[in-house]
């Protein structure tokens, strides 16, 4: 690697990274837009899309950033691993500790609070005649 540092930046390397990035981007977008992964479980979809994103980030780091060249190559890579571990702890840790933020709020799981989910009896016209509409009718 050291022998080629002067001409280490090559068209081939950039084009390879570019083509791989285009493929990964189109794969991620078309999987959602064309409905290829509609049948999958939500967790599987999330892992699939995040996996594609991580792969594309690695592709761009390797092919575009040229971290493995120059006198500070070792330091570039080591500091990047340190930062990547901290970023993982920040994002995954925050999500793990705070995903149940609304656990005791209205709506049970607290993930989604929407009145059409909470009170389908009031909002939808074809609902069976049960408790809440029965209370409303005599008042009007």
């Amino acid at each position: 690697m050291k022998a080629t540092t002067n001409h280490g930046i090559s068209v081939t390397k950039y084009m390879l990274g570019f083509i791989l990035s285009v493929i990964l981007t189109l794969l991620a977008f078309s999987a959602v837009m064309m409905g290829w992964i509609d049948q999958w479980l939500t967790g599987t979809k999330i892992i699939f899309l995040l996996g594609l994103a991580v792969i594309q980030m690695l592709v761009q780091i390797v092919f575009f950033l040229h971290l493995d060249e120059g006198p500070d190559a070792q330091w570039n890579i080591r500091s990047m691993w340190l930062a990547a571990s901290c970023v993982l702890i920040i994002i995954a840790g925050t999500w793990m500790t705070m995903r149940h933020l609304n656990y005791n709020m209205m709506g049970g799981s607290g993930r989604v609070i929407r009145s059409d989910v909470l009170y389908p009896a009031i909002l939808s016209p074809q609902s069976p005649q049960n408790e809440r509409p029965a209370e409303i009718v005599p008042e009007t």
Binding site: L67, D72, S79, M80, L82, A83, C86, I90, I91, R99
Partner: peptide, 28 residues
């Protein structure tokens, strides 16, 4: 000047922390 470039790389990594907190925020 390779030292300046390494210093700039360190700046970018700390900028990554800013984005990491915002990504965590978005996820929550």
């Amino acid at each position: 000047d390779s030292t300046k470039i390494f210093g700039f790389w360190i700046y970018l990594l700390q900028d990554l922390f800013l984005f990491a907190t915002l990504f965590a925020n978005m996820a929550v």
